[in-house]
Amino acid sequence: MSHSRGLCRPEGMRIAIAGGTGMLGRQTAEELRGRGHDVRVLSRHAPEYRVDLTTGDGLAEALEGCDAVVDASNSRSPKQAEQILVEGSRRLLAAEESAGVGHHVCVSIVGCDQLPFGYYRSKAEQERVVESARVPWTVVRATQFHELLAMGFAAVGRTRVLPVPRARLQTVACAEVARVVADVVEGGPRRGRVEVTGPETADLRVLARRWRAITGRKALVVPLALPGALGRALRSGVATSDRADVRGTVRFDDWLRAQTTTGKGNGR
């Protein structure tokens, strides 16, 4: 059975969000609820729809009657990335096909297919799984989040030394990505990619110095050499895009100042 309701009912859809308790998942859920949709948050720790992508437990019940699914799942452990992102996608898509879901939205990373590192390889393979599925799909590729960059600086900066490699980044506010994901859900499947980036490209060392100046943290920025293919890829800017479908408007500096004012961006 395939009712594909997400294609004919853009308002008041029932949408499941895998990884809905994570950073992007939470903000996407809030955005979609604000637009009048019925949102189900799926994760191992969700209060109602507890789902485990590594086993498939809970998927059938959670997806019953859903028009669309957003896969914002993630893996904190690089060792589990393939099991959650790749095998988990296969389980999720199979359950969606059985439930008659009309649109699968996969959240991915700009340049993941060009970054020679385990986690990014898993993201690229996840995209291939989605593209070969029978469920109509859209892949939303985003650049790195302002939030993750600030969290990384704060965690490492506690030592008062901040070793930073050269890397061209184009960070974006998570809230802006959440709005794009919500737009994609409402727009229906494209069987293609949508790219969303931040408004500016900057070297990671420059961003580290801006973070230090705005937050007032006492941390010495130390150049770190990142050899090999990964270092070359990051320096060349594969984690950025000059062909973005949507370019965010909130610069890292402005986002960080706003967070610091409310006490959220200083890592304390």
Rank of each mutant, 00 (worst) to 15 (best):
L42H: 00
G20R: 09
D113F: 00
D38P: 06
R134W: 03
S75Q: 10
L224V: 03
S73G: 10
G231Y: 11
E147D: 09
D183F: 00
T143R: 14
E200T: 06
E30T: 11
L148G: 11
R90K: 15
A81M: 09
A18W: 03
E195R: 14
L42P: 01
I17C: 08
E48W: 00
L224W: 12
G58D: 04
E48F: 02
K123I: 08
T262A: 14
R168D: 03
G187E: 02
G20S: 10
L24C: 04
A46M: 08
R33S: 12
G22A: 13
T260E: 08
V69A: 08
A213M: 07
C66Y: 00
S73H: 03
T171N: 08
T262E: 12
H3S: 14
G19R: 10
M151N: 12
E131N: 03
S43W: 02
V107L: 15
R160F: 13
K123F: 01
Q114M: 13
L59D: 03
Q83A: 15
A167D: 05
R191V: 00
M23V: 02
R14I: 12
V164T: 13
R141S: 08
I84P: 01
V135Y: 03
H104G: 07
E30F: 01
G12A: 12
D254H: 11
K79F: 02
E200G: 01
G198K: 06
R128D: 02
E82C: 07
T260V: 15
P199C: 09
R193T: 02
A202F: 13
R26Q: 15
L92Y: 02
D38G: 07
G65N: 04
R193D: 01
Q259A: 15
S2E: 10
T215I: 09
S132W: 00
E82K: 14
A81R: 05
P78S: 05
L220I: 07
V221R: 09
V129W: 08
L42K: 10
R247V: 14
E186T: 05
R121A: 05
D253P: 06
Q27R: 14
L149N: 03
T215A: 09
V180H: 07
A202C: 11
T138D: 06
M13L: 14
R168E: 09
E147Y: 09
I214F: 07
V181M: 11
L226V: 06
V39I: 05
E82W: 09
A154S: 15
K123M: 13
S132G: 15
D254I: 03
T260S: 13
C112P: 05
D38C: 13
L224Y: 05
S241G: 06
S4H: 14
W255H: 04
V184N: 06
E176W: 04
E96L: 09
L85S: 07
E11D: 12
K79G: 01
E125T: 10
T262S: 13
W211M: 08
G20Q: 07
A72R: 10
L220V: 10
S132H: 09
E186L: 14
E11H: 08
E82D: 12
G231E: 04
Q80P: 00
G237V: 06
R166H: 10
V196F: 08
L115W: 01
